[in-house]
Design a protein around this nucleic acid. Sequence first.
DNA 1: ATCCCTCGAGTTCA
DNA 2: CTCGAGGGAT
Length: 691
Amino acid sequence: MTKNEAKERIERLRKTIDRYRYEYHVLDRSSISDEALDSLKHELSELEGRFPEFITPDSPTQRVEGKPLDTFSKASHESPMLSLTDVFIEAEFRAWFERVTNFLSRPITPAFYCEPKIDGLAIELVYEHGIFVQGSTRGNGLVGEDVTQNLKTIEAIPLKLKVESEKSKNSIPHSPLHIPPRLVVRGEVFLTKKEFARINREQEKHGGKPYANPRNVAAGSIRQLDPKIAASRKLDSYQYSIVTDLGQKTHEDEHEILRSFGFKTNPDTKAVESLEEVIKYRNYWEKHRDKLPYEIDGVVVILNQNRDFEAAGVVGKAPRGSVAYKFAAREATTVVKDIHVQVGRTGALTPVAELEPVSVSGVTISHATLHNRDEIERLGLKIGDTVLISRAGDVIPKIIKVFTEMRTGKERAFRFPDTCPADGSKVVEDGVILRCSNPNCGARTRESLYHFVSRGGFNIEGLGEKIIDRFMDEGLIGDAADIFTLTKGDIEVLERFGEKSAENIVAEIAAKKEISLLRLLVALGILHVGEETAGVLAQAIFNFQFPISKPTDVLKVFHTMSLENLQQIRDVGPKVAESIYGWFRDPRHRKLIEKLDVAGVTVQPMKLKTGGKFKGMTFVFTGTMESLEREDAKEKVREEGGDVSESVSKKTTYVVFGENPGSKVEKAKKLEVKTLTEHEFLKLLTSHTNT
DNA sequence: ATCCCTCGAGTTCA
DNA sequence: CTCGAGGGAT
């Protein structure tokens, strides 16, 4: 990057950040998430680090946050309300503890108190003789806004402290004997995800733009002049610390005392005694953050011994004895370097964005699919744009927003090619999808081969895309049938293939020569025929007029069927029928099937179980199972006459879940569909009761 | 004609 | 996982 380019980018980043910061901090209303804003700020400070000559005093990196609004009267804090230093990775976290130890210049016992870091608004509450008298926001740390009236609408905040009975006083070790004349506590006001979603639904119903995050709405509600608005939003609040000295020795004590006074505290906090346990706690919640009813972006770690915490003092605007151990951001901003077009098995042209690599949810992302032409238009994306990306379902990278204000004018519009990038054939439209018109397109042949050997199809392990590419490029194979006539000698002469690996591949291929009718139909890659439809077809044609034992039998059967015949089959309508009909009448496909026969591929006789014990039931699998592969499990269900589906609906009989189940379990609960663990499923499978 | 349910296809990274 | 669209129900 040249100096001039850096200067321009720095300026644009500042402008963009300022705009969203204004929305965020002053209007409590933002169209982007904090993570997106952080990502932009991060790039800015990095650029400023490389080009310090461009740092200006008004840069967002130089600013101090949070000035109180004039609309509220001011409330001074008894002691400054500090912010927290962030750490993201284990090494940074360990470094923090080392810094503290060094600073105290004495070894301290690693005793920490951990709590979820809620995405909300920090508040301070003052009680006099047990009565809530004042509540305030953080403001600039020294002076905040007096929002007492609004805080009074929150049910989780007691208006009057609870007085413990003599009996319970004894059972709670640190419960104070008396209500102190003055008590100052701090905590967080937040919105549950559910309430946030409800408010956004309302908002959209009235034609407004949805809010980007619950923090903004919580802050906005508390900073309303009209308490009725705050009351209409069901805000929640946890308190987490006591400013007043009541003789508490640890942070854990403070939580206990808070509870005894009738404050609501977070139930998921934990006192631990080692760095490892903190890391475990943090990683646990990173994985399970969706289980919590509120948004969190990390965990707060504090030295549990108040003596240590206080001795550690303050560094900058943050206490040294505490850190925010944050999760990897789920959103980040980056730049689209280019857009290229991929050709799939069906000839579909898919645009893919090449990104400046960026870390999202702890994984470096460098590509993101753009699906189709419409998607690019919808986003208004140009090559060179600065974009916001996330991972759909925490897996698939996705561009969610284009920062048009970051444009320099050098961005190029992307033009979809009129010809296939792989072979130059004409491109034809098929709904929103563009396809290469040439059925023999090289890219399509290649993709079809990948599909042929994939799980679902012939399931030839050890024959991945890289190796297929290699074999094709070496001229060893031209189509799927050639795979079965590969010999050890063919392979072992290739560079980087030894005798042993050649042997393994050949053995694996030979072992998969016998295939079920269902998988054969999937492997062929007929448009609109996936696993489900293949299953239905297999049922329909097996023993149709003659038994099927080899690939050409399949060919014969389909040649006896008219379009009308095909449409008699369940789940087969005009489009699917047309596709199947045409496929088997294509001379190239006929030749392929004949070659498969010659190569020795055979079709397993189908165990046609009428009235298996799963008849009429539909199973959905999710997560990883220990004892058996997902494909095998599906097979077993089908053998017992059951159906397997990929999506949960009210027609689903059972959802079977293994390790790390996806969202399907949630959906099952919502639809009141029964769920089974792997163990329960196996028991059901081996039981002999016909239900 | 219209809605709802499902299926198919394509996609990323380690 | 998500989108688009095929198929079947209404």
